[in-house]
């Protein structure tokens, strides 16, 4: 009996400066299979479809539950999380490529540390006085919690940045994820002590003004963050801040 198989085409690149090549794989189909389990299978049996031995694929992954944000890659051309990419829902051959906007490390692994640098640049934290006992936190009504919670679900996968036409090495656009975090922290009763700093930061080169409102971010976000709304709100706040700064002199 011939077993059902799944065809993969995976873009390989041994190092940042090496040429890229496509390798084809043919794997046995299993129910519930996702792209990650296919790559695990290749690691256990690193042989291409034409029977040539190769190396296991280098890729980032960790939780496999779409919550750690590691395994973002382009699958059939689209940036998404590999763990939630079920083979049965994909057109074959399944083409897997690394994210294109980030420095490539190897194969499907890229360096997304720019996001963490951006979070630093906008002071994406609540400045607590200290970790010693200082009593309970500020009151937050459920309505506020429900408004902020979606923003705090950002998993730093960088899909919103990958799909953004404005996010590239010419504009150095900050990307939707960071802007959403600015909104989150500006909304927090204590976090908003840095509100003005964050807004001024966002008006820097590569800031919020670079957004072209193509709205790809909100389409691609695997956690359905209200990204365009955050961009809109923060654009307004940045503008008002800049106007205030100008008028104050």
């Amino acid at each position: 009996m011939a077993n059902k198989t799944v065809a993969f085409e995976i873009k390989r690149q041994a190092s940042p400066n090496a040429p890229s090549v496509w390798e084809n794989f043919e794997l046995e189909w299993r129910p519930g299979m996702n792209v990650i389990s296919a790559m695990m299978e290749i690691a256990a049996n690193p042989v291409t479809a034409d029977g040539r031995g190769t190396t296991p694929i280098t890729y980032d992954s960790n939780c496999l539950e779409e919550i750690c944000g590691s395994c973002a890659m382009r699958i059939n051309g689209k940036a998404r999380m590999a763990c939630s990419a079920l083979v049965d829902n994909l057109e074959q051959p399944i083409k897997v490529e690394p994210l294109s906007k980030f420095p490539l490390v190897r194969d499907l692994q890229v360096d997304r540390s720019v996001l963490f640098e951006n979070l630093k640049a906008v002071k994406a934290w609540v400045p607590v006085d200290g970790t010693y006992a200082l009593g309970s936190g500020p009151r937050v009504f459920p309505q506020q919690q429900e408004a902020n919670y979606p923003l705090s679900n950002c998993i730093s996968c960088c899909c919103c940045m990958e799909v953004c036409p404005q996010f590239n090495d010419v504009t150095n656009f900050v990307g939707a994820a960071t802007i959403a975090q600015v909104k989150l922290f500006n909304n927090h009763p204590t976090g908003n002590v840095f509100k003005e700093d964050r807004l001024r930061a966002l008006a820097g080169d590569g800031g919020i003004q670079e957004c072209g409102f193509a709205q790809n971010c909100v389409e691609a976000c695997p956690k359905q963050l209200p990204l365009t709304e955050a961009i809109s709100d923060m654009s307004r706040d940045v503008l008002i801040q800049k106007a205030k700064d100008f008028l104050r002199g």
């Binding site: 720019v114 150095n172 008006a203 080169d205 590569g206 940045v238």
Partner: peptide, 22 residues
């Protein structure tokens, strides 16, 4: 970590004038 030699650079927080022109 190896510094980013290529790729998108971090936000230049509060610097530059592109906001005004845009």
């Amino acid at each position: 970590t190896t510094p980013l030699r290529q790729g998108v650079q971090p936000l230049r927080a509060g610097q530059g004038t592109s906001f005004l022109w845009r």
